[in-house]
Design a protein around this nucleic acid. Structure first.
Length: 191
DNA sequence: CTATCGATTGTCT
DNA sequence: GACAATCGATAGA
């Protein structure tokens, strides 16, 4: 599946995110997303729910995860392994969708410069790579997705979706809460 | 191709 | 003091 065949992207309102994060995560596949004009098509997501032992929200609100308990349709950004800035979209309180991979479409040269890599498949295929390519950092934590620097448009129709278990976690590993654009070569790992 | 390992630091116990 | 929603390099099949 090539995401570039997807057309008719539509706008959204906050109610889109006021749902179970698994539904939101699936519905985000095929969406256009950009930060300051740099971005592409979302091809891989993961859902993290309340009462989910793998979620940062599992033990309640802290300084780090504050945004996960804030309003829906806002960004939650965290630092992974002391190196990688990762981006989530907040859904209902204590839940969020991790944006794991994007098919690059706009600002590819900027992404290549930020990443120090030329191969398009390696620019945004993984939450850390995506964070670096889109220049994600703590400054975006808690910002609304409806305003600059963000741009988000949903696909008019749901594309074919693959599902699987989440990546890189040690608790609640059994849930199939990872979603991807079927047969996309831009996902971080095969489904 | 798969497996292993070091990097690096904020966060929580 | 331990660990982490990862990545890239390297070694080996």
């Amino acid at each position: 599946m090539e995401a570039t065949t997807l057309l008719n992207q539509v706008t959204w309102d906050t109610s889109f995110f006021e749902r179970r994060a698994t539904e939101v995560a699936a519905d985000l596949i095929g969406a256009e997303f950009a930060v300051s004009g740099i971005g592409g098509i979302i091809v891989e997501t993961e859902a993290y729910l309340p009462d989910d032992a793998a979620s940062h929200s599992f033990s309640g609100a802290t300084d780090r995860n504050r945004a996960m308990f804030g309003p829906p349709a806002h960004a939650y950004v965290y630092l992974s392994y002391g190196l990688h800035w990762c981006l989530n979209f907040v859904c209902l309180p204590g839940s969020a969708v991790l944006i794991r991979a994007i098919e690059p479409r706009w600002g590819i040269e900027t992404m290549q410069a930020r990443r120090g890599v030329r191969e398009e498949r390696l620019l945004c295929s993984g939450p850390g790579r995506l964070g670096q390519a889109l220049a994600i950092s703590r400054t975006q934590d808690g910002l609304p997705l409806s305003k600059e620097p963000f741009r988000l448009h949903l696909p008019a129709r749901r594309p074919p979706i693959s599902t699987g278990i989440r990546v890189g976690i040690t608790r609640a590993v059994e849930h199939p809460w990872r979603f991807g654009l079927a047969n996309s070569r831009f996902v971080s790992r095969k489904f």
